[in-house]
Design a protein around this nucleic acid. Structure first.
Length: 307
RNA sequence: GGGUAGGUGGCCGAGUGGCUAAAGGCGGCAGACUGUAAAUCUGUUCUCAUUUGAGUACGAUGGUUCGAAUCCAUCCCUGCCCA
């Protein structure tokens, strides 16, 4: 079974309680908790919070490394199998929708890495010749895909070109291939939600707590230890703190910015998960006991156990 | 008290007589999303009717004009300078 959630706080303890109850182990589905040395700002559960429940896919990648959905899919799947072998129930927890989809939709990614040089080349070309040029080229290759991509969406335009360059296939073809496998696991998806104003209040409070816990110190350490940090620096809370440390904004501005970005992120997650029609929504303000009761009932009724 | 700059939609800010329900930005809301995803991108944003439409709106009141956010008068408020 899988469990996803798009709220910044509350899913952690709920998932751990659930794991204790049903003899499960947790596979994180969070693109930032993956990284080492980023704990406060990503709200990675501490040893104490884990209450002895084993967690996978947490603190396992160097912040300077590039990590992708495909990496996630492979490793998370391995974790799930490992848990199943122990006759335990895997509980996938986290708010990274793209990562969750890779698992529940059983998406297969071809075994090709990212050609960093080619990507840089395309970026340079976009700079010099204009993004429109690249868009047109991509359109020649894969008009179907490009119909859905904005002319300003640099990342996706470049990706279409990249896929073609590396695989000789169009994005559209590639996506069809990626879904050729049958879904391997039975699963349920549960999501925590609550009234918007309450959600936002909680997020704001959560950010204040992070600051109190020493987010700024953590970021200082992080950049000292990893001067070439890349992907990890996209993380909300980290990029703003870096700007603050570089005197580009005041501490108050930084805190406000982190809160705002976090709220928006939560909203984007809601959008993402609302689309999944198998989603079973839980009230985030309910007690854990009640939510766990609902989860157990759902699982029993449909008699779907393992994954 | 004198001088001066200004008061525009949730906020910032453009706009000096009709093409203005008013550029742009921010914020909000909604959406997209298959190898950077806590990323990236899109739409929408006065009210009501929702096809054309109607109403209300640029500090307040009054005036000029066929027509005003834009011109005039008075008043209120804010910043700066001089007393």
């Amino acid at each position: 079974m899988l469990y996803a959630d798009q709220q910044l706080h509350g899913k952690t303890s709920l998932s751990i309680s659930l794991a204790q109850k049903i003899d499960g182990e947790i596979v994180s589905c969070d693109s930032m908790q993956i990284y080492k040395d980023m704990n406060i700002g990503t709200a990675t559960p501490t040893q104490e919070e884990m209450r002895g429940i084993k967690h996978y896919m947490i603190n396992c990648v160097d912040p300077e490394e590039r990590f992708s959905v495909s990496d996630y899919k492979r490793q998370a799947e391995k974790s799930i199998e490992e848990i199943l072998k122990k006759d335990k129930i895997p509980i996938v927890v986290g708010g990274t929708g793209l990562y969750l989809n890779s698992l529940v939709d059983e998406i297969e990614y071809p075994e090709i890495g990212i050609d960093e040089d080619y990507r840089i080349k395309l970026n340079n070309r976009a700079e010099k010749e204009g993004l429109g040029k690249l868009y047109d080229e991509a359109y020649q290759i894969d008009p179907e895909a490009m119909e859905k991509i904005s002319q300003n969406d640099k990342k996706r335009i470049i990706r279409v070109l990249e896929i073609y360059y590396q695989t000789g296939k169009t994005k559209t073809q590639q996506e069809i291939l990626s879904r050729k496998n049958e879904v391997r696991f039975d699963y349920y998806i549960f999501g925590l939600n609550m009234e918007r104003t309450v959600l936002y209040e909680r997020i704001n409070k959560r950010v204040d707590i992070m600051i109190e816990q020493g987010l700024i110190e953590e970021v200082k350490e992080l950049v000292k230890k990893h001067p070439k940090i890349k992907t990890a620096m996209q993380s909300i809370g980290y990029k703003e703190t870096v700007e603050y440390l570089e005197n580009k904004m005041t501490k108050e501005e930084m805190i406000e910015k982190i809160k705002q970005e976090s709220r928006r992120y939560a909203k984007r997650q809601l959008t993402w998960f609302r689309k999944r029609n198998e989603m079973i929504w839980l009230n985030g303000l309910e007690s854990h006991e009640e939510n766990i009761r609902i989860i157990l009932e759902t699982i029993k009724k449909e008699k779907c156990k393992e994954v």
